[in-house]
Design a protein around this nucleic acid. Structure first.
Length: 856
RNA sequence: GGGAGCGUGGCGGAAUUGGCAGACGCAGCGGACUUAAAAUCCGCCAUCUUUUGAUAUGUGGGUUCGAGUCCCACCGCUCCUACCA
C-alpha cells in the first residue's frame, strides 16, 4: 500500500491541472451557471490565514458546484491600488508598481500551492491600465448622468495619509487605514451622488434573502432613513421686529421627526458651519463669542466626539425666529451639537422632549416648557386640558422622550404625541395648510467622496480649463495614464508633476491643467466582479450580454469588515450601471457569506507586532495543503471565528492518513491476507447492512451540509462513514471481496464515495486516490457528485426513548414501520416499574424518536 | 446612548420544524503491537453516586405532554454605530 505523501502529490497534480486547463471556464456552455466569488485581496505581502480561510471556503463551494453539473465561474484578481504600495515605494525608493506586482506574484504562487481552482486567464488587476481605463470610462458615464458632483464642503482629512476620506472610511474618528486622528477641512472635492439611490439601496435589502441579517441591518442603519417634516421659521429683523412680507432670506427651515412637540420649542439652534452664521452676527456685540465658538468647534475632533466628550457649547446670536404654530419669538443660538450636513443644519430645540436640547437648556438657562407628558406625570392632571402656557419650567433631570399626551399645545392639546403619532400628523397637516412646512424624508447616508490626493490610484479623467471650466477627458483619450517617472520618496506627487498636469482643453483647445486627484480605491472594487465576466474586452468595460449571463454572483464570500463600505458601494455601482443599460440586475450579490476571523489559540488577533502570526506556507510545508484546507473548514463553522490550534491541524492530517488507508483497504483483494481475520457470516451480513445505510445517509448529510455552508459537519459526516467502513473491514475479510462478489461492489462504492465527498475539500488527496488506488482516469473533479437513496439510508429497526413525564426511563427497539398502538403497548410494558401507582393520562408517540407517557 | 448577535464538557464544536443534549474531533486515561519509542489499532472519557438513580446547555421565572431551541426579566461577553433632531 502506498502511503499518503502530500508533498509529492500536491505539486504534481497542481502542474497537471494547470496543463490540462481544467479550471478554465468554457464559454457557451449549456449547463446552468454558478458564479462563485471571493473578495479579491489587497496585495499587501504574503498571504495570511484570513486569506487561506476565505479562499478555501470559496474553492470548496466552486468545486462542489462543478461536480453538481454547473458551469462555474470562479475568478481571482487583485485590488492593487492604495496607500501601502506608496508607503513601501517611499521607504525603498522605488515605484509602487514594483512592490505591488511582486506581492501579486507571491500571493498567486501561494494560492496555487493551496490548490485553488481559479480561472487564471480571467485575472483582473486593478492597477492595470486595461482595467482602470474602464473605471475612468464609468466615471465619465456617471458624470454624464449627473451622478458626479464637485463641491466645496467640510471633509474628513487624514493628516498622515495626506488625503481626504469618505465618511465610511472614518472609524471612531480615525482613519480606516492608518488609525490617525481625522481632521475637518473645507475643500472642493469630487462626489458620487450615492444619496440619489438611498431609498432603493434601503428597499432592495429586502430582496437579499441570502444575506446575513446583521449585514442588512448595518446597511439599513448606515442609510438611516428618517421620516419627519420640514418646518419653516421666520427670522426677525435685527431690531427684533417680525418682517411683514418675509423674503426667502428671512426664512430658516429645520427638519424634525417630532413636529408634535413644536409648541415646546423654546430656542433655535444653528450648526457652527451653517452658511449664514457670520452674516447674522456681523458688526454686533454677539459677533465675537459666536465666531469664537465657530473656530473652537473646528478644533473639536471627531475623535473627541467619538470618545464620548459630549459637552455642548453654544453662543447666542442676538437674533430671534418666529415659531410658525404659535407666533412665539424664540432666541437663535449657535451650538456645536448640531450636525451641519444632516437635515438643514438647523434645529428647533424642544428641551422638554429631547435630551440634547434639555442638557443645552440647563447649561445656558433656557426655558424648558413641558408640552408632552406621560399620564403618570405629577403635572399631568393640572395640564391635561390646558391649551395655553401656564407652566414654563420643570424640575426634571432628563427630557421626556417617550410617548405621551400633548399639553399647553393650543388646538393639539390632548392628542397623543410621539414619533409617527396622531399629534405629529395633525401638526404637519396644519403646517402644510399654512404653507410653512411639509412632509420630508431624510437619510443619514452622505454622498460618496471619491477624490484622493494620492498618486497610486485611478486618475480622475477631468481637465480644468480657465475658459471652459471642468471638462471630461474625451473617451477616445482614455485612459489617463499614471506617469511612471515619479519619485515619491523625493516628495513628488501628481500635483507637482508638470508634464502630467499640462494639457490642452478638449473643448477650446487652449492650455489647461489636468485634475491631479485620483479615485478612492473602493471605486476599483465596486465593479471588478463585472469585469471578470469579460476580462479581455478592449471596446467596453464588459459585454452586457456576458455580464447578464453570469450575474448576479451566486455566492460571495468575504470578511464582515466590508459590511458597509465595499458592499454598499458595489450595490450602488450595479444600480447606476443598470440605469445606464449595462446590466439588467438590481443587486450584484445573491448570497453573501461573511467568514469569521482567524485568531490565535488565546483568541487574539494575529498580528506581526504581537508575533503570533501563523503562516499558511509553513503549515503547507508541514502538513500539506489538503490538511490545511480540511482543518480550516472543520474547526469552526465559516461565519464564526476560528481559534488556531496546531494539534487540531495534526488531527486532520491524521484523519487524511487514516481515510487513505481505509480506502486502500476497501480496495484490497484476497492476496492481502495479512490484513484481516475471517469472520462469521452473521456478523458480516450485519456489517454490510450497516455500511450501506451509512453510505446513503452520509451522502445525504454531506450534500445538505455543503448546500448550507456547514462544512464542519460535512467533514464530521465523512469521518463517520470512514469509521463505519473501518468497522466493516474488521468483520469482512478481504477474500470476501474478491472480484465480482457483492462485497467487492460495496467496498468499491464506499471507497469512491469517500474520495468524492472529500474532493471539493481535499482536491489533491482525492485525485491521487481516484487515479491510482481506484484506477480511474483524471479527473475526479469532472465526475458527477455522488447520489443517494433515502430509502437505503433507513434502518428497518429503530430505537425509541420511552419517557415518563418527559424523563427518559427506558429504551425500546421496534420495527421502523411498527403500528402506533403496538409501540404504545411495548413502551408501557417497558416502563411498568415507573408507572406503579400512577394513572396513565396520555401517550404521545413521536415517530422514529420517542414515546412520552403522561402519568400522575 | 442606539442597534445586532452570542452564552452547551478540560478545549473546538454538534443537535433542519420544540422530541433521547454533548455527533465529529482535540487533549487526557487504559490496553494491544514493539527490546523501546513513534506511528497504528481497540476501549474509556459531562457531574455526583457502589448499583439503582439523581443533576446538568449563564441566572431566575413562564408556555408546553416535552425547552439548549419559544416568551419575560436579570447577569456576562462580542461586534457595529455614535450629538442624525
Amino acid at each position: 500500500m502506498k502511503a499518503y505523501n502530500p508533498h509529492e502529490i500536491e505539486p504534481r497534480w497542481q502542474k497537471a491541472w494547470a496543463e490540462s486547463g481544467i479550471d478554465e471556464v468554457r464559454e457557451g456552455d449549456e449547463r446552468p451557471k454558478k458564479y462563485v466569488l471571493e473578495m479579491f485581496p489587497y496585495p499587501s505581502g504574503d498571504i495570511h490565514m484570513g486569506h487561506a480561510r476565505n479562499y478555501t471556503i470559496g474553492d470548496t463551494i466552486a468545486r462542489y458546484y462543478r461536480m453538481k453539473g454547473f458551469d462555474v465561474l470562479h475568478p481571482m484578481g487583485w485590488d492593487a491600488f492604495g496607500l501601502p504600495a506608496e508607503n513601501a515605494a517611499i521607504k525603498h525608493h522605488s515605484h509602487p508598481a514594483k512592490w505591488t506586482y511582486s506581492n501579486i506574484a507571491t500571493q498567486k504562487a501561494s494560492f496555487k500551492r493551496m490548490g485553488f481552482s481559479y480561472d487564471w486567464d480571467r485575472t483582473v488587476v486593478a492597477c492595470d491600465p486595461e482595467y482602470y481605463r474602464w473605471g475612468q470610462w464609468i466615471f465619465e458615464q456617471f458624470w454624464k448622468r449627473g451622478l458626479v458632483e464637485r463641491r466645496n464642503s467640510p471633509v474628513n482629512w487624514c493628516p498622515s495619509c495626506k488625503t481626504v476620506l469618505a465618511n465610511e472610511q472614518v472609524i471612531e474618528g480615525r482613519c480606516w487605514r492608518c488609525d490617525s486622528e481625522v481632521e475637518k477641512r473645507d475643500l472642493t472635492q469630487w462626489y458620487f451622488k450615492i444619496t440619489d439611490y438611498a431609498q432603493e439601496l434601503l428597499d432592495d435589502l429586502d430582496q437579499l434573502e441570502g444575506w446575513p441579517e446583521r449585514v442588512k441591518q448595518q446597511q439599513a442603519n448606515w442609510i438611516g432613513r428618517s421620516e419627519g417634516a420640514e418646518v419653516t421659521f421666520t427670522l426677525c429683523s435685527p431690531d427684533g421686529s417680525v418682517p411683514e412680507n418675509p423674503t426667502d432670506d428671512d426664512l430658516i427651515t429645520v427638519f424634525t421627526t417630532r413636529a408634535d412637540t413644536l409648541f415646546g420649542c423654546s430656542f433655535f439652534v444653528l450648526a457652527p458651519e451653517y452658511a449664514g452664521v457670520a452674516d447674522l452676527v456681523r458688526g454686533t456685540e454677539y459677533e465675537k463669542p459666536v465666531m469664537d465658538l465657530v473656530e473652537a468647534s473646528k478644533k473639536v475632533t471627531a475623535l473627541q466626539r467619538a470618545q464620548g466628550d459630549h459637552e455642548k457649547h453654544g453662543a447666542f446670536t442676538g437674533r430671534y425666529v418666529v415659531n410658525p404654530v404659535n407666533g412665539q419669538k424664540v432666541p437663535v443660538w449657535v451650538a456645536d451639537y448640531v450636525v451641519a450636513d444632516y437635515g438643514t443644519g438647523a434645529v428647533m430645540a424642544v428641551p422638554c422632549g429631547d435630551q440634547r436640547d434639555f442638557e443645552f437648556a440647563r447649561k445656558y438657562d433656557l426655558p424648558i416648557v413641558p408640552i408632552i407628558l406621560g399620564e403618570d406625570d405629577p403635572l399631568y392632571p393640572q395640564l391635561k386640558s390646558e391649551k395655553n402656557r401656564v407652566v414654563t419650567s420643570v424640575d426634571w433631570d432628563a427630557a421626556y422622550d417617550a410617548e405621551g399626551y400633548l399639553v399647553q399645545s393650543g388646538e393639539f392639546t390632548g392628542m397623543k404625541g410621539g414619533k409617527h403619532s396622531e399629534g405629529e400628523a395633525a401638526v404637519v397637516a396644519k403646517l402644510e395648510e399654512m404653507d410653512l412646512g411639509k412632509r420630508k424624508v431624510e437619510y443619514r447616508l452622505r454622498d460618496w467622496l471619491i477624490s484622493r490626493q494620492r498618486y497610486w490610484g485611478n486618475p480622475i479623467p477631468a481637465i480644468h480649463c480657465p475658459k471652459c471650466g471642468v471638462v471630461p477627458v474625451p473617451e477616445e483619450d482614455l485612459p489617463v495614464m499614471l506617469p511612471k517617472d515619479i519619485d515619491l520618496a523625493a516628495g513628488e506627487t501628481l500635483a507637482t508633476h508638470e508634464e502630467f498636469i499640462n494639457c490642452t482643453c478638449p473643448k477650446c483647445g487652449g492650455p489647461a491643467r489636468r485634475e491631479t486627484d485620483t479615485m478612492d480605491t473602493f471605486t476599483c472594487s465596486s465593479w471588478y466582479y463585472l469585469r471578470y465576466t469579460d476580462p479581455h474586452n478592449d471596446q467596453q468595460p464588459f459585454d452586457p450580454a456576458k455580464a447578464n449571463a453570469w450575474m448576479p454572483v451566486d455566492k460571495y464570500i468575504g470578511g464582515i469588515e466590508h459590511a458597509i463600505l465595499h458592499l454598499l458601494y458595489s450595490r450602488f455601482y450595479t444600480k447606476a450601471l443598470r440605469d445606464m443599460g449595462l446590466v439588467n440586475i438590481d443587486e450584484p450579490f445573491r448570497n453573501l457569506l461573511c467568514q469569521g476571523m482567524v485568531l490565535d489559540e488565546h483568541g487574539d488577533v494575529m498580528s506581526k507586532s504581537k508575533g503570533n502570526v501563523v503562516s499558511p506556507e509553513k503549515m503547507i510545508d508541514a502538513y500539506g495543503a489538503d490538511a490545511v484546507r480540511a482543518y480550516i473548514l472543520f474547526m469552526a463553522p465559516p461565519e464564526k471565528e476560528l481559534l488556531w490550534n496546531e494539534d487540531g491541524l495534526a488531527g486532520l492530517y491524521k484523519f487524511l492518513n487514516r481515510a487513505w488507508r481505509v480506502v486502500c483497504d476497501l480496495m484490497a483483494q484476497a492476496d492481502d491476507e495479512t490484513l484481516f481475520e475471517k469472520a462469521d457470516e452473521k456478523k458480516a451480513a450485519a456489517a454490510r447492512k450497516q455500511l450501506v445505510r451509512e453510505r446513503h445517509r452520509v451522502v445525504g448529510k454531506v450534500t445538505a451540509d455543503i448546500e448550507r455552508d456547514n462544512f464542519n459537519t460535512a467533514i464530521a459526516a465523512v469521518m463517520e462513514l470512514v469509521n463505519a467502513a473501518s468497522d466493516y473491514l474488521h468483520v469482512v475479510a478481504p477474500d470476501a471481496r474478491a472480484e465480482g462478489a457483492d462485497d467487492a461492489v460495496l467496498a468499491r462504492d464506499v471507497a469512491e464515495t469517500i474520495v468524492k465527498l472529500l474532493s471539493p475539500i481535499t482536491p489533491h488527496w482525492s485525485e491521487e486516490l481516484w487515479c491510482t488506488v481506484l484506477g480511474h482516469e483524471p479527473s475526479i473533479h469532472e465526475e458527477p457528485w455522488p447520489t443517494f437513496d433515502p430509502e437505503k439510508a433507513k434502518s428497518d429497526e429503530v430505537e425509541l426513548a420511552v419517557q415518563v413525564n418527559g424523563k427518559v426511563k427506558a429504551r425500546i427497539t421496534v420495527a421502523a414501520d411498527e403500528a402506533e398502538d403496538a409501540i404504545k403497548q411495548t413502551a408501557l410494558s417497558a416502563v411498568s416499574h415507573a408507572l406503579e401507582g400512577k394513572d396513565v393520562k396520555k401517550v404521545i408517540v413521536v415517530k422514529g424518536r420517542l414515546v412520552n407517557i403522561v402519568a400522575k
